[in-house]
Nucleic acid binder design. Structure first.
Lengths: 169, 169
DNA sequence: TCCATATTGTAAGTATGCTGTCAATCGAGA
DNA sequence: TCTCGATTGACAGCATACTTACAATATGGA
């Protein structure tokens, strides 16, 4: 623990959790893009597609809560997925404000085909660690994300996905 | 390990290393910004300032290697730091292509003042873990970033910082 | 019913982070 | 010395990620 009078050096930057998480995010995205380059799909777009397949007819606001992405950002993500014809937006019968999201056949096919590449990418991220260390890191990471859920600007609300099925509560 | 025929569920997304690192990056940035909001400085701008203070007269390309940020992106970061008068760009006497970067008095003062907030932010990121787990996670994270250095689009090249002092060898 | 409040999608503005490309410049070898 | 290839900073373009704001719409309570 550095004292107040220590000059901050590059070493303090390199060992800061925030810096390390930034680097790992860069590395994880680079590996994902490399493994999936045949499909022209980003990690965010992939997560969105999986979520829409799991929750057909979800709206954009609920989708943002389910994958913990910013609501504003998600607008353009959805636009791009629609432009590539992987999803469809249909007006909600009950609420004129919302548009409901569905996978197209093309989107479902893409999702089926890309899975091996995505799994290869996820495996590669931790590959260079010893198997026991992989398990330890993944467990601590999962725990830390969960403990800090409320600290992020867009906390994960997985249960929100159920609401579009009709509010019985 | 899911088999080829398993449907991918949200759970597979939530437990993927790439997703977890993205979440932690979001969380770490949110905590940094919150702790440092009095200073109007982003994590990237902070790392740049520290690096320029450690290596006065460094050029933009070498700076990008030292903090592993993209060279194109760094251009606008430097612009913003210069607009806020935290750094100065001076033409290099030996090389008409490069501009050398220096902290201003104002930048040095800011760096001095902001350190407690930055340290508080970094501590907060891991705070909710048990002390032993913090050490374990940090060690594994450091190891993993190092092992995957070449996988990122902009590998860290800390030793590049020395080159601007004159090539003796 | 009417109205204050909330929600939804969208947009504008800022900041990373990456892909390219380009002109100016540099450096090394023929 | 001349020229070719590399380097440098700048720019354009795309994709996240956040902020605020806004209009349309919904909802709950007086």
């Amino acid at each position: 623990m550095p004292s107040k009078s220590d000059p901050i050096t590059m070493d303090a930057v390199y060992t800061a959790p925030g810096y390390l998480f930034r680097r790992m995010q860069q590395i994880a995205v680079a590996i994902f893009v490399e493994e999936c380059k045949a499909y022209d799909l980003t990690p965010v777009q992939y997560a969105s597609l999986v979520s829409i397949r799991t929750h057909p007819g979800i709206d954009a606001t609920r989708l943002s809560a389910v994958i913990a992405f910013d609501r504003s950002t998600l607008g353009s993500v959805i636009e791009r997925l629609e432009a590539k014809a992987y999803i469809e937006r249909k007006p909600s019968p009950g609420d004129k404000r919302t548009k409901l999201l569905y996978l197209t056949k093309s989107g479902a096919a893409l999702l089926r085909d890309i899975i091996p590449s995505v799994e290869r990418a996820q495996a590669r991220i931790l590959q260079r660690l010893k198997p026991a260390d992989r398990k330890t890191l993944l467990a601590l990471l999962t725990q830390l994300v969960d403990l800090n859920n409320e600290a992020s600007r867009v906390p994960l609300r997985a249960e929100d996905a159920l609401e579009h099925l009709g509010r019985s509560g």
